[in-house]
Write a protein that binds this DNA or RNA. Sequence first.
DNA 1: TGCGTTAATTTAATCGCTTGACTAAATTAA
DNA 2: TTAATTTAGTCAAGCGATTAAATTAACGCA
Lengths: 227, 227
Amino acid sequence: MTEAKVLSRGDQTRDALIRAALVVFGRSGFDAASTRAIAEAAGVNQALIGYHFGGKQGLYLGVFEHIIGQIREHMAPVAAQVEHRLAQATPEGPQRRALALEMMQDLFDAFNDMNFQHSREGWVRLILREQQDPTEAFQLLYDSILSRLMGLVTRLVALGSGLEQDSEACRIRAMMIFGQLLVFYTARGTASRHLGWKELNRDNLAALKRQFRIVLESQFPPGVPAV
Amino acid sequence: MTEAKVLSRGDQTRDALIRAALVVFGRSGFDAASTRAIAEAAGVNQALIGYHFGGKQGLYLGVFEHIIGQIREHMAPVAAQVEHRLAQATPEGPQRRALALEMMQDLFDAFNDMNFQHSREGWVRLILREQQDPTEAFQLLYDSILSRLMGLVTRLVALGSGLEQDSEACRIRAMMIFGQLLVFYTARGTASRHLGWKELNRDNLAALKRQFRIVLESQFPPGVPAV
DNA sequence: TGCGTTAATTTAATCGCTTGACTAAATTAA
DNA sequence: TTAATTTAGTCAAGCGATTAAATTAACGCA
């Protein structure tokens, strides 16, 4: 319903290739993924990769542009809202901890939902690989959204903890907070065995959110003065 | 100095192949890594992979047996010590929070040091890949040590939080605690840019440990009654 | 509407190259 | 002399890229 059906034949092919490549690249990595396998998964002739994207590399970048668009769609609204509230917040007010906590919960609720919705696709695997050996694709991803999200959470940590704005401590803490959620995707095998979660379903996600909320509150207790 | 020099010619070849394969498999993944590249990195003829390990797959398993041995060497002593203290601890004593906190810090100090020492090798990348698509190698790794470590931390969370022993909540919390550290390896690209850490050095590790300790204490405040 | 022309897109086939596995012969150690 | 180990070379299969030819859609004009 959200998709316009006025896609030309070429655009349909581009689309099918990107969606197939998302899966195949995610499962096998760039080198091990074959253009023939991608083309077959897309139901399309192999030479069309060269025609539409210039080659394997071009298709890979196309996949990341697609991902970036999706993440933007999910996170931009809540990020903008948090930025707005941050600009208005008095950094020394008495309830600034509660405020920071609330905004973090908004942000990470959206983050969790996005990850959950796309957990079946190849997102996680693709980004994980790029984290280990960043290429042009990661530069794109980081500059367009990741840096914004990280900066936002870092400012929220500063607000909630009283630590100096953008200090190294705040940045480390921001990374750690993400880590608490991401570990369920990055260490999927361990999570699967230790928790018996063969796949992340709605119930699992709810339990995860509950514990995350508890831990977040313990890190930024609303009623206690800052360190 | 720790290595006995009584290795036969064949054992030397096996050793060289495993060390080279650790790097090449880690960098490229199983499929994309070529046996020729591994053999060249080991300074050895390609056919020797087939001779000594039966094939590519056998070499891959050999690499994981090597890794498992190393992790055991690092973690088994502290794990045994914690298990011993856990067996003696009275689960309802007044300082059980402080006790749990102390044991967690011992455990994760060892964990951090191990990760740091081997961060240059291909460990992280290899295990990360197995987490996404577990093969026989991950089964081996999980059964031989990962399950023990996870179980241990889960029991410590139970002791420190007052939550029911081995409840799902405890297991989730245990995963999250690991996540706070692992994120600096799994999201290496983001960490590199957000923190300016091009590689994890001694200073960075110290800063990381400091923040981790603070967060851990906030989750299990020594002087406060349990939830 | 229908025809003819042009551009966009798709197809099958082929190129040189690399892959993992294997083998027989050569080399080394016991 | 025997067994363990290493070597160079070969095999079929799959790789990414490219090409010329075939097919399809788009547009101007009658």
